[in-house]
């Protein structure tokens, strides 16, 4: 779970994006993070990862309430995995090899995989629906396939929290729906706390358990049915 306690968040040398805001995202739920360009979606995600400093307040992660700014990268990697939009560009690397990298926080100094790791990799590939692409070089994957691959890598990392920055940004409509549905079933079946930023309000309303809508300097957390009639959110979808 993600426990946001009374945080004030700002870009460097500018006014606050969020002022004294709190919310709690429980395990087993999919939350969509919405808001206009520049409303601070990526900044909030970075703050949850501990890479963007808070002006005040704190964010606690997981059952043991770990503060990401107070912990080691290795410890954080066992709690939280991320999915970014950029393509990975490594010659000759196959999809399976990239997903295997997700096991890095759990393997030793040389990253040697044991049977349990291989099983987790196979399962991650299957959950993301790309088992058939495992041996393909990543440079030959389509954008949709690559996005699923990045999700599989995060799944292989086996963390209770997954953050995704616009995972559906470059995808066509059927792929967008498929990926958001996949995220919802992962959250429910694997009891993960998943937070993804998006501009796709329809798929967010259709699949997410909660919507966290940013309108600086505040945010609002509501289930989709209530969010749909919340004026600042509704005005976005016109």
């Amino acid at each position: 779970m993600i426990d946001i306690q009374d945080i004030t968040l700002a870009h460097r040398n500018s006014g606050p994006l969020l002022e004294n805001q709190s919310c709690f995202l429980p395990a087993g739920t999919l939350t969509a993070l919405t808001g206009r360009n520049g409303s601070g979606k990526s900044t909030l995600l970075r703050a949850i990862c501990g890479t963007h400093p808070l002006r005040s307040g704190r964010i606690l992660l997981g059952q043991k309430a770990v503060d990401p700014t107070q912990t080691t990268p290795a410890r954080l990697a066992s709690l939280l995995s991320i999915v970014t939009t950029g393509r990975v560009n490594a010659r000759h690397m196959t999809a399976r090899q990239l997903v295997e990298m997700g096991r890095a926080p759990l393997t030793g100094r040389f990253g040697i995989l044991h049977a349990a790791d291989r099983e987790a990799v196979a399962r991650a590939l299957e959950l993301a629906g790309i088992s058939h692409l495992a041996e393909r070089e990543i440079s030959r994957l389509s954008d949709g396939e690559h996005q699923r691959l990045m999700l599989a890598r995060a799944l292989a990392q086996d963390t209770p929290i997954i953050l995704l920055d616009e995972p559906t940004g470059f995808l066509d409509v059927p792929n967008r729906r498929a990926v958001t549905r996949l995220l919802a079933s992962l959250a429910h079946d694997e009891n993960k706390c998943i937070l993804f930023s998006t501009h796709e309000l329809d798929s967010a309303l259709a699949n997410a358990d909660y919507i966290l809508h940013l309108s600086p300097p505040t945010f609002t957390l509501l289930p989709p049915s209530e969010m749909a009639v919340y004026p600042p959110f509704a005005s976005l979808s016109v």
Binding site: P73, A74, L76, S78, I82, G86, A104, P105, R153
Partner: peptide, 12 residues
């Protein structure tokens, strides 16, 4: 190889 953001997120 995966870039600094992902590398860091995997505990590097």
């Amino acid at each position: 190889l995966l870039g600094p953001v992902l590398a860091r997120s995997m505990g590097l």
